[in-house]
Amino acid sequence: MSQAMDQEPVPYEDPGAVPYGNFPNYYSFNPPENRISLLTPGLLRKFLHASSEAKNQKDHSHPILAFDVGCNSGQLSVALYDHLMESSKPSDGPSDVHFLCCDIDADLISKAQASNPFPDSITYMTLDIMDSSMVEGPIHRFLDGLGQSTFNIGFCMSVTMWIHLNHGDEGLVEFLRRLTTLCDYLLIEPQPWKCYRSAARRLRKLGRQDFDHFHTLSIRGNMAKKITCILTREGNAELVHRFGKTVWDRSLLLFKINRST
């Protein structure tokens, strides 16, 4: 996943060899603290408490469920889990938190599973979120196993660009729509458009075929604004909080999904 600063990190494996952003050493140059430090203590928990109460009529026996899409080798997933647990108070509702974390790269998921400090609470799964059978299959089975129909929150951290480059404009819109059907809140970190150019440039330097959709994308420019527009049109979601920008100039945006009654 590319950096938005003047000097980008150089992963030990060429970026062109991992066209989905699945760098094996990603957290060595973008550690979890880059995101976690922006999250106001207790604020996510406050939103999720309200979500859990609305779904379960104040039955605090139901856990908070989180879905981390594109989790890489899992360090950020663990940090997000710790963040939610550390901000837990008796008045905050459910103290139990369960994560389903997925990535398209089976090797990264194997690493995440091997180093998982909370195997009873964090589940890692090799999964292509763009494969609709995965939504109808393992994702819904995970939710059914915990007695819920949606996740309280979905995390999408520097993933949207890779979906967009590999699946085009329609793929990006479908990806975001899919997340809104699965999650009550979404915390999204979109990559800026200059990251798209950098990813395409690195691919060309390696003499590899360009991304299939890069030159035909019509959704471009201010990607944080574009993604906000996609999510909020027709009242499907609302932007409820901005957590600022990371050192890589990437916004952390929290959306609440509006369910029709």
Rank of each mutant, 00 (worst) to 15 (best):
L231S: 05
D59R: 14
E8Y: 11
Y124K: 10
F155V: 05
Q191R: 12
H62W: 14
F99S: 04
G42C: 11
P11K: 11
T126W: 04
D120L: 12
R208C: 13
P138W: 07
V97I: 15
N56A: 11
G207H: 11
T232S: 13
H60D: 13
L100A: 07
S87E: 03
A224P: 11
P41F: 12
G16F: 02
C195Y: 08
Y185C: 15
L48R: 09
A66D: 05
N258Q: 14
F29I: 09
L127Q: 08
Q191L: 15
D6T: 04
R35V: 15
L48A: 09
D144P: 00
N22F: 00
Y12S: 12
D128M: 07
S28T: 15
G74R: 10
F243A: 05
D68A: 07
V247C: 06
P41W: 07
N166T: 08
S110G: 11
S2Q: 08
I163H: 00
I257N: 08
D212R: 13
D249M: 08
L38Y: 04
C71G: 09
L143I: 07
S110A: 15
Q191T: 04
E170R: 14
A114F: 06
N72L: 13
E53M: 14
N22M: 06
G221A: 10
F175H: 13
H49P: 05
P190T: 05
G244L: 09
P11G: 01
H167A: 09
T181F: 10
P41N: 04
L38K: 07
Y81T: 06
T150P: 00
D249G: 09
R250C: 03
I257G: 05
L176W: 01
C156T: 13
Q113K: 14
H98Y: 15
P41L: 10
I122W: 00
L186K: 06
N236S: 11
L84N: 03
L187V: 14
L44C: 01
I227D: 02
L76Y: 02
P63M: 09
K46A: 15
L239M: 07
P190M: 08
I109L: 04
E33T: 14
C195K: 06
P41A: 03
G168I: 10
W248G: 12
L146I: 00
D6G: 02
L84I: 03
D68T: 00
S158F: 02
V78F: 02
L80V: 03
Y12C: 06
D131N: 15
I104L: 15
W193C: 03
L186Q: 07
D59C: 14
F255V: 10
R35K: 13
L203K: 11
H140S: 11
L143Q: 05
C156D: 07
T40K: 14
T123M: 12
F67E: 05
I227G: 06
K55M: 10
S37D: 14
P41H: 09
L43S: 12
D249W: 04
T180V: 00
F142S: 04
F23D: 10
E234I: 00
V69Y: 01
K205Y: 08
P90K: 10
H213K: 03
Y81Q: 04
K205C: 08
Y27L: 00
V135W: 13
L108R: 04
V69R: 04
L76C: 10
M161L: 15
H98E: 07
L206D: 13
N25G: 02
K58C: 12
H83E: 08
H213E: 01
V159W: 03
A200L: 10
R202G: 03
G21Q: 03
I257E: 02
A106I: 07
D92S: 15
H215C: 06
R201M: 09
